[in-house]
C-alpha cells in the first residue's frame, strides 16, 4: 500500500507514484498544480480511540489549501470523520482518544499545544454535522448564539451578523420575515443551512462538514452544494462525503482513505478521471466498499 507523502512544496499537492502502470500527470490541470498555501498541515498524524492500543489513523500527511474545498472519501470506518474531528478537537471529548504520533497545524499553529483553548479553536474551525442540529430557539437566536457566547452585546452588531450569515447561507430570503419563529419549524434543508449560518456567524477560517447532505432531498442537497462552492470564496471547507458525485461536483481536491491510511490525495478532476493508485480506482468505481 502506498501512503501519501507530504510534499515539501507547501503550495502543491502530493504527486502519487503509480501502483500498476506508468505514472501519469493530467496535462489539462497542470496550471492548477499551483495551489493556494496550506491552511491545515497534517504531519505524520496517528490517532487512537483506545489509548494507543490500535491506531485508527496511521501516519497521515496532508496539506489542506486555503479557500478550497477538500473532500474526504472512503468506506465506513476508514478514518475520514475521525480526521475531520481532529481538526477542531472534537475527539477531546472521548476520554480514551489520543494523538499517538505527529500533529496538526492550522495557520502555522500547533492545534494540540497545551495552550490552545479548544472552545476558542472551534470558533475558528466550525463544524456542520450530518444531521441538522438547530437549538430549540428562534431562527435569529440560533445564528446569534455564537456571537453572544463570544461576549457580543451590541444589538445592531448582532442584527447585522445574523443578516449577513443568513445571506451567506442562502437562507435570508426564505426566513427574513419570520426570524422570531422557532428554528425547528424549518424544513430539513433549511435547518442545515441555518446550522451553516450559525457556523459562519462567528467568522471561522475553516468549515468542517461531516456528510452535510446525507439526510436531505436532491433539491435541498443541490442548494447546499451550491452554497459550498460559494463558501469557498471566504472559507476553507473540508467535507466528508459518501457521495462520489458530490465530491466531484463541489471539491477542488479529494483525499481517499482506507483502513486509517491516506491512500491518495490529488486534484478532484485527476483523482476521478485517472487515479494513480489502483485501490482508489477500485473504490471510486464501485468495485469494493
Amino acid at each position: 500500500m502506498v501512503t501519501a507523502q507530504r510534499n515539501t512544496n507547501m503550495h502543491s499537492i502530493p504527486n502519487q507514484p503509480s501502483s500498476n502502470k506508468t505514472s501519469s500527470r493530467d496535462l489539462t490541470v497542470e496550471s492548477e498544480q499551483e495551489g493556494n498555501p496550506a491552511l491545515i498541515e497534517v504531519d505524520n498524524l496517528s490517532f487512537s480511540y483506545d489509548m494507543g492500543k490500535t491506531d485508527t489513523l496511521k501516519h497521515i500527511n496532508l496539506d489542506i489549501p486555503e479557500n478550497k474545498v477538500t473532500a474526504f472519501i472512503g468506506p465506513s470506518g476508514c478514518g475520514k470523520s475521525t480526521l475531520l474531528r481532529c481538526f477542531n478537537r472534537m475527539n477531546d471529548t472521548i476520554p480514551t482518544a489520543k494523538i499517538t504520533g505527529g500533529g496538526i497545524k492550522i495557520m502555522g499553529s500547533d492545534l494540540y499545544a497545551s495552550r490552545v483553548d479548544s472552545i476558542l479553536l472551534r470558533k475558528h474551525v466550525g463544524m456542520v454535522f450530518q444531521k441538522s442540529n438547530p437549538f430549540p430557539k428562534s431562527i435569529y437566536e440560533n445564528v446569534a448564539f455564537g456571537l453572544r457566547i463570544a461576549g457580543e452585546r451590541n444589538r445592531s452588531t448582532i442584527d447585522h451578523a445574523v443578516e449577513e450569515s443568513l445571506k451567506g447561507a442562502a437562507l435570508w430570503d426564505e426566513v427574513k420575515d419570520r426570524l422570531k419563529e422557532p428554528a425547528l419549524e424549518l424544513s430539513g434543508g433549511q435547518q442545515q443551512r441555518l446550522c451553516i449560518a450559525r457556523t459562519i456567524a462567528v467568522q471561522p477560517s475553516v468549515i468542517l462538514m461531516d456528510e452535510p447532505c446525507s439526510a436531505l432531498d436532491p433539491i435541498a442537497t443541490a442548494v447546499i452544494e451550491e452554497l459550498i462552492t460559494k463558501l469557498r470564496e471566504d472559507y476553507t471547507v473540508v467535507i466528508v462525503t459518501h457521495n462520489m458525485q458530490q465530491a466531484t461536483r463541489v471539491s477542488d481536491r479529494t483525499a481517499f482513505f482506507y483502513l486509517g491510511e491516506l491512500i491518495e490525495y490529488d486534484l478532484t478532476s485527476k483523482l476521478f478521471t485517472n487515479p494513480s493508485i489502483k485501490q482508489t480506482e477500485e473504490y471510486i468505481s464501485g468495485r469494493f466498499g
Partner: peptide, 8 residues
C-alpha cells in the same frame, strides 16, 4: 455515473 477507467 462512471469514473476513472470506466468513464474513459
Amino acid at each position: 455515473n462512471p469514473v476513472a477507467t470506466d468513464l474513459r
